[in-house]
């Protein structure tokens, strides 16, 4: 079954249109990279497809149901840029956070053996079992993002949505984080990734959607590099240093000086 289906979706904050006329499907096992300049509506599109916002026009479906009515929380996991400052100060252990992955399945009852096994398995899977009793606030940015992925894995969700998860990471942790995502995708997890670093996305994602309010490109990542969608979406005045897909270090940044993503 199609995981996500958007049909002519439009959304605006007040009078400002942020997303306009976007249609795209995400199939099971896909790794979709959602790229575009700052303020292009990528994060909003992610919120729309997760059902966190309702489109002003058009339809968003999750696993065949209208996204905002979809109720199977355990099938969706979400990883943000980084935790808020408040959450970083919060005394909470890695294990306590990963356990949250089981909450959609078990919000009030006792944790079963299956719940505990899923938590332990997830900790092992992203290689942070030795950090289980550490405070999340004391971890490095890269370790912390692994905690959130572990939470998603503990949920045994079908769709993992990430909103610029590596903004706060150094190049090395970012590479190993994306290796982890690619590996999880190889094992069948469907991934949607919002990312401003085009080099990274084209190297790892199987499909690319390039957005600047409207959809400029949606297709295989190989075809994206050859298309002129990038220049069109970012505008001719934007400087694109390098977007070849075998090269994905810090040089590959597209760095528009526009205002921050809303």
């Amino acid at each position: 079954m199609t995981v996500v289906s958007l049909n002519d979706v439009a959304f605006s904050y007040g009078d400002v249109p942020v997303v306009d006329g976007v249609s795209l499907d995400i199939e099971p096992g896909e790794f979709l990279g959602l790229v575009g300049p700052n303020g292009s509506g990528k994060s909003t599109l992610l919120r729309l497809l997760l059902g966190l916002e309702r489109p002003d026009r058009g339809e968003a479906h999750l696993f065949g149901e209208p996204a905002h009515e979809f109720g199977d929380g355990e099938r969706i996991a979400y990883v943000a840029q980084d935790v808020t400052d408040a959450a970083r100060d919060m005394p909470i252990t890695v294990r306590e956070v990963v356990r949250m992955g089981r909450y959609p399945r078990n919000l009030f009852g006792r944790f079963s053996d299956a719940d505990r096994a899923a938590v332990d398995g997830a900790l092992d899977r992203v290689d942070i079992a030795d950090l289980a009793d550490r405070r999340v606030g004391a971890l490095s940015g890269g370790q912390r993002q692994r905690v959130f992925v572990a939470r998603a894995l503990a949920a045994e969700s079908d769709l993992l949505a990430l909103d610029e998860p590596t903004v706060a990471l150094d190049a090395e942790s970012r590479d190993s984080f994306y290796d982890l995502l690619a590996d999880l995708n190889d094992r069948g997890l469907t991934i949607v990734l919002v990312e401003h670093d085009i080099g990274v996305v084209t190297a790892r994602a199987s499909r690319i959607a390039c957005l600047n309010r409207e959809l400029y490109f949606h297709g295989d990542s190989e075809d994206f590099a050859e298309s002129d969608a990038l220049a069109a979406a970012y505008g001719a005045n934007q400087r694109v240093l390098d977007h070849s897909h075998d090269h994905h270090d810090a040089e590959a940044h597209v760095n528009p000086d526009s205002e921050a993503e809303s």
């Binding site: 966190l52 979809f70 199977d72 929380g73 969706i76 979400y78 943000a80 949920a155």
Partner: peptide, 8 residues
């Protein structure tokens, strides 16, 4: 946000 995405 993650809680909302998980339908809490």
């Amino acid at each position: 946000t993650a809680a909302r995405a998980s339908r809490v």
